[in-house]
Write a protein that binds this DNA or RNA. Structure first.
Length: 419
RNA sequence: GUGGUCGUAGCUCAGCUGGUAGAGCACUCGGUUGUGGUCCGAGAUGUCGCGGGUUCGAGCCCCGUCGAUCACCCCA
């Protein structure tokens, strides 16, 4: 075993797989940009209090999964376990809510949760998220879901599905909670389960044990307690999804792990990932900004798991052939060490003109150098010896077809720019 | 955090009832003078995750530990 190894449970991406990670992340981000969202770049650690108040102390995320530490000034800081709380904090702190609403932002980066690792569940993981703050239109709810769905479709992902529900407004939840608690109180449950029920009775809907499922089968559903406004809102979201031909199922048992969710709530699930099947999820949060000391504005957003979307894409086999392995246009080879300085210079000039190119380093024989050219994935290669330097002409070889054509060294850049 | 499985060359793995390690792929070089992807030949590579123990002797057995993985929990 090596002396030094990565900390437990972190995900790492290096070539060649990193190109797929990058593609996934960029596709998710691009979908957000296309819908008018702008970048928000935030710190990876925040005041611990932000997550306690924002995410909720009763949640597992806050109560037992946070990386919390004290800095040298005695401040309690926490590595961000999710993105929404930080966005809200920054919006409030920088008075962004005084601008024209809604505020539409996206973020991307690493998040941290001290859970027991598993495939698709890491202690440092990556998310791309968006937040739309300041409007309560069902059209915005639809937009947020559509941004995620469009990104998945663009990637070519097929093995995923969308589940939605509505957690209603405060009134809806209060009346439901009363009935649910009384229903649960009549069940015979073990201590651990009772404890969870006391923190959030909705959690029992999410229990995978058959006996609990059975016991909860006739429990009162939140969806049946929605206020008229919530009901109408939820119906409108469904209409919009239908007309956009975004397939979904309503899952009245869906429970989210973060306390701030209200109203429209959704999850994207891949069936090919085993237990860690959620590739993204989100929902509306009515009281969050006010809770954190800002204006009482509602918002909605999602967080998509880049690691898991990548895993799902791989499970669907969509990276097999379709993707170009390299961005290189040209790979240059110096026939002998006499031409190396010339080639190095040429490569540098071509790069200055925006041509993506590389060259054979080291003192490999031509055969080995050609192998490097092949492996680089460059579209074209060219060998430069004394003859080429005196004549000013090179044979530009198309690596796919194997054919080559004569081109002036001085007009190499133009050759690629016109393509 | 709880329980199960696993940990051998860069990768995927083999290694018989304990006798000090192999294959395929990848890699490097070569198959006569300046052209890769196929073929043929040659070569390099491992403290068998780590630490203890049992034994004349352990990759194979036992304990611990680290890590991965599966399920629960939770969630991206």
């Amino acid at each position: 075993m090596r002396e030094l190894q990565a900390p437990k449970g972190v995900s790492e991406y290096f070539p060649p797989r990193s190109q797929y990670f990058e593609l996934v992340r960029e596709t998710l981000i691009d979908s957000a940009r296309t819908a008018g969202y702008s970048l928000m770049e935030l710190p990876v650690f925040e005041d611990t209090e932000l997550f306690k108040r924002g995410v909720g102390e009763s949640t597992d995320v806050v109560s037992k999964e946070m990386y919390t530490f004290e800095d040298r000034g005695g401040r309690s800081l926490t590595l961000r376990p999710e993105g929404t709380a930080g966005v809200m904090r920054s919006v409030i702190e920088n008075n962004l809510d005084k601008l024209m609403l809604p505020i539409k932002v996206w973020y991307s980066g690493a998040f941290f949760r001290a859970e027991r690792p598993q495939a698709g569940r890491y202690r440092q993981f990556y998310q791309v998220g968006i937040e739309a703050i300041g409007l309560n239109d069902p059209e915005i709810d639809f937009e947020v879901i559509a941004v995620a769905d469009r990104a998945f479709k663009k990637l070519g992902l097929e093995s995923y599905r969308l589940e939605i529900t509505s957690l209603g407004d405060a009134k809806s939840r209060a009346s439901h909670r009363k009935d649910l608690v009384s229903y649960i109180s009549k069940l015979k449950l073990d201590d651990a389960t009772l404890e969870r029920a006391a923190l959030n009775p909705l959690r029992l809907f999410d229990d995978k044990r058959p006996e609990i499922r059975e016991a909860m089968a006739s429990a009162p559903l939140l969806l049946d307690y929605l206020s008229p406004e919530s009901k109408e809102n939820f119906a409108r979201v469904q209409e919009l999804l239908n007309s956009a031909e975004i397939k979904f199922t309503i899952n009245p048992l869906m429970v989210r792990g973060l306390d701030y969710y209200t109203g429209t709530t959704f999850e994207f699930i891949s069936d090919k990932l085993g237990a860690q099947s959620g590739i993204g999820g989100g929902g509306r949060y009515d009281g969050l900004m006010a809770e954190l000391g800002g204006n009482d504005l509602s918002g909605i957003g999602f967080g998509l798991g880049v690691d898991r979307v990548l895993l799902a894409c791989e499970a669907d086999g969509i990276f097999d052939a379709s993707i170009n392995k390299s961005d290189l246009d040209l790979f240059l080879i110096a026939l002998s060490s006499d031409e190396k300085a010339f080639v190095s210079n040429l490569v540098n000039q071509l790069r200055n003109q925006g041509i993506a190119c590389d060259m054979a380093y080291g003192d490999r024989a031509l055969k080995g150098a050609m192998k490097s050219a092949d492996k680089s994935g460059a579209r074209f290669s060219a060998v430069i010896g004394a003859d080429e330097i005196t004549s000013g002409l090179v044979a530009l070889k198309d690596m796919k077809s194997g054919e080559s054509k004569e081109v002036r060294i001085s007009s190499l850049a133009e050759e690629f720019k016109s393509n």
